[in-house]
């Protein structure tokens, strides 16, 4: 039944088979995507026509590798910029929220806490459309009232940043709160007894303690933003982010250049994920 009890060989063998199948199911699509990035063929499909790196380095019009593919490179750059701002904003606000909910007492705290959790249970699509509609109404209002056209409120870069920020900040809050809860507040009090102001104590003592959680949360925020599709779909302007751009290419069919991009992303994100796990294990 479990490892400390005697088990029939058939039970263990059957169980191993199930787990093997599960992992095959988990990795098959990723493996196939990666392998076909190196296939010397116009289509991301079998038969295998030999190994090539052209889908990475190719510069011919019918063989445009990712390193020369302007459209995809632009969208990667757009995604990096969005992710940068989302990470910055959500980390700053998430840390504030963690302090607010862990250390402060104020009326209606429960309600505010509930609101902070809400983005986790609101489907991303709904978050996207409600922010789109609200920004539009606000833009119309400002224009009718003062005659100013606020570009910020139209679908585009900053609206995508705000939309992703709205739920990623919740994740940061939860990660940082979990660590802040373990913090011994007498350390802060000691610093304040020695003449430090509250913010100085937080800056020199508490934030030092929180650093691993903040770094981890920022990494999660960056990745969540980089990969976000549902919320972004409704807020995106002419400057498409990578997931949106890839979606259009997958839907309409494309060359194995998508596999090449996927290969880079799979290798990149899994390295980052394993590194993140490794470092967070060490710090516990």
């Amino acid at each position: 039944m479990i490892r400390s009890l005697p088990n029939q060989p058939a039970y263990i063998a059957g169980y191993r088979l199930y787990i093997g199948l599960y992992f095959a199911f988990l990795f098959a699509p990723l493996l196939v995507t990666c392998v076909l990035a190196f296939n010397d063929s116009q289509f991301p499909a079998l038969p295998w026509k030999g190994f090539t790196l052209e889908w990475f380095t190719g510069a011919l019009p019918h063989r445009m590798g990712i390193f020369h593919d302007r459209v995809n490179l632009d969208s990667i750059w757009a995604s990096v910029q969005v992710a940068f701002w989302v990470t910055l904003l959500s980390t700053a606000v998430g840390v504030c929220a963690a302090f607010l909910f862990e250390q402060e007492h104020f009326p209606l705290k429960g309600l505010l806490y509930f609101l902070m959790l809400a983005p986790l249970v609101i489907p991303g699509v709904i978050l996207g459309i409600s922010i789109l509609l609200f920004a539009n109404s606000l833009g119309l209002f400002v224009e009718n009232r003062w005659g100013i056209d606020v570009g910020l409120l139209r679908p585009g870069f900053w609206l995508v940043v705000l939309g992703q920020f709205s739920f990623i900040a919740t994740l940061v809050t939860l990660i940082v709160s979990a660590r802040l809860r373990k913090f011994d507040r007498t350390l802060e009090e000691a610093a304040m007894n020695l003449g430090a102001g509250r913010l100085a104590a937080i800056w020199f003592i508490t934030l030092r303690f929180l650093r691993p959680a903040i770094v981890g949360a920022a990494a999660v925020a960056f990745l969540m933003s980089f990969e976000n599709f549902n919320t972004t779909l409704f807020l995106v302007g002419s400057e498409t982010t990578l997931p949106i751009n890839l979606y259009l290419q997958v839907r309409d069919g494309s060359t194995p250049v998508i596999n090449a991009i996927s290969f880079l992303l799979i290798v990149g994100t899994s390295t980052a994920a394993v590194a993140n796990l490794y470092f967070s294990r060490r710090q516990v």
Binding site: L30, L246, Y247, I258
Partner: peptide
Amino acid sequence: PFWVSELIRVYGWII
């Protein structure tokens, strides 16, 4: 696998 974007995972199944 779940750190990889949903889009790429779905694309893998499509291929």
